[in-house]
């Protein structure tokens, strides 16, 4: 009886603390963060969903899978040998974007110089103001639709 009691005394903290730590770290903590995030940052907390014409069309951070010649294309569709690590990289390099301008210009009739200016206006950099320039494909295409609604009937 006494050995049983002493064994319980040894194992009780182990069992109780493992359950308690699961409840605190595995439930209370992530649910607290979820609650505060949903209240304070609902846009980011739900995946930074981007709207077009009043409906969600994707996430700012996930490749939207453009394939039509009138749009800039992400890197994940064009060529499997250039695929990103995530497979959903939403960005392309500036040079990649510029190389697509002749195709888009051909398909839409928008002057290449205007497309060039649009791309440059939506540049981001890996080091904020310096580093390698890149563009977010969805952001760029939505800007394209907004700037040239007549070239994109049915989208705006």
């Amino acid at each position: 009886m006494s050995s049983k009691a002493s064994r319980w005394k040894t194992y009780r903290p182990v069992i109780a603390l493992s359950i308690l730590s699961m409840l605190v770290c595995g439930l209370a903590y992530p649910l607290l963060i979820t609650g505060v995030s949903q209240a304070a940052f609902p846009y980011q907390a739900n995946g930074s969903q981007v709207q077009l014409g009043g409906r969600a069309v994707g996430s700012y951070y996930i490749d939207n899978g453009f394939t039509l010649p009138i749009f800039f294309h992400g890197r994940n569709e064009t060529n499997p040998f250039t695929a990103s690590a995530s497979g959903v990289d939403p960005d392309i390099t500036l040079s990649d974007a510029l190389s697509q301008i002749p195709r888009i210009s051909n398909a839409t009739g928008i002057p290449a110089s205007s497309l060039d200016a649009l791309v440059v206006a939506h540049e981001h950099w890996t080091l904020w103001i310096t580093g390698d320039p890149y563009v977010n494909v969805l952001e760029l295409n939505l800007a394209l639709i907004a700037a040239y609604p007549s070239s994109y009937p049915g989208y705006a």
């Binding site: 963060i33 995030s37 304070a40 980011q44 907390a45 739900n46 995946g47 951070y61």
Partner: peptide, 10 residues
């Protein structure tokens, strides 16, 4: 979250 990482159980 503020910088863009999701947090939801929806």
């Amino acid at each position: 979250v503020a910088l863009g990482v999701p947090q939801t159980i929806g």
